[in-house]
């Protein structure tokens, strides 16, 4: 039998832990085995199964860009059994990783276009990968706008990177917090993401919109994009469903005939509209 064990994870060393927000951490992970590191590649949008032995596996996107070589990063919120166990780990500890799985953001097709990234809360990580991927290939794109919102200032993740993007002349960065979530020294916007999107009113001409966020944010953001003139084909989002295997066998993540793990997690709004509302 020549096939490899699909369930056998790579050993990854936690190189760096960053506290992003309350209960939210980012791990920078390095392959323990150099050969595996050299053979590994992924594209933006893909995800993996991260495991703590004895606790289980958990699914998240790869939050770093494929242009950043030598490591991958993941950002997670401590919520269930596995993420709680992950939270208790320290730099130097080892975890398991399987992947990459799933489809990708088709950034090659976006060449020559403007990009509008809209993210909410803990949904910035999947977008961070594609943002950095595009910024590292900045000459391929026209205007880049990022609109990011969280419940409160404390809940904003990647605070240093938000500042970096803010300072870049080639990025229009709009940060917002929900009403009541601002601090006295907050100088960003205050308001829900769809409202701030409407206020910012980016042009839809030759522009791709990428939206990641909690279901309620997504629900109110799509109509605004449509109002701004975005066609369904030019709006991308990601779906998150419960998964165990990551490669189309365990039977959990399908939405109708579409398997989020294989056909997704990246979908256009056109594709999304063809799916039954079971996600």
């Amino acid at each position: 039998m020549s096939e490899k064990n699909l369930y056998l994870p790579y050993s990854m060393i936690i190189e760096k832990v960053t506290e992003e927000a309350p209960f939210v951490k980012t791990f920078r992970l390095k392959f323990e085995n150099e050969k595996e590191a050299n053979n590994f590649s992924f594209k933006t949008g893909q995800f993996g199964e991260y495991s703590v032995f004895g606790e289980g596996e958990s699914t998240f996107c790869i939050a770093s860009s494929p242009t950043k070589k030598g490591y991958i990063e993941c950002t997670f919120r401590q919520a269930g059994r596995v993420t709680t166990a992950l939270s208790n780990l320290e730099e130097g500890n080892t975890i398991g990783f399987r992947g990459p799985y799933g489809n990708i953001f088709p950034i090659d097709d976006w060449k020559g276009k403007s990009l509008l990234f809209i993210a909410g809360g803990i949904a910035l990580p999947p977008m961070r990968s594609v943002i950095w991927n595009c910024l590292d290939l900045r000459e391929n794109f026209k205007d880049v706008t990022i609109i990011y919102g969280a419940r409160s200032v404390a809940d904003l993740v990647y605070k240093q990177e938000l500042r970096d993007w803010e300072e870049r002349p080639d990025v229009k960065m709009v940060t917002t917090v929900d009403p009541g979530g601002e601090t006295p020294d907050w100088n960003g916007e205050v308001g829900f993401v769809p409202t701030i999107l409407e206020k910012t009113a980016p042009s839809s001409k030759d522009t791709i919109a990428i939206v990641c966020g909690p279901p309620i944010m997504i629900k109110y953001t799509f109509p605004v994009l449509e109002k701004l003139g975005f066609s369904d084909d030019n709006i991308y989002t990601t779906l998150e469903n419960r998964m165990k295997c990551g490669f189309g066998k365990c039977g959990r993540c399908n939405v109708g005939k579409v398997f989020v793990c294989k056909d997704g997690p990246v979908f256009t709004l056109t594709q999304l509209k063809q799916l039954p509302a079971e996600y």
Partner: peptide, 20 residues
């Protein structure tokens, strides 16, 4: 059984299953 493993605080290791 799909994977065996060893784990302790400072090291953990996945071990493949011998299907032969």
């Amino acid at each position: 059984k799909i994977v065996d493993y060893e784990h302790s605080k400072n090291s953990s290791k996945a071990i493949d299953i011998d299907v032969s």
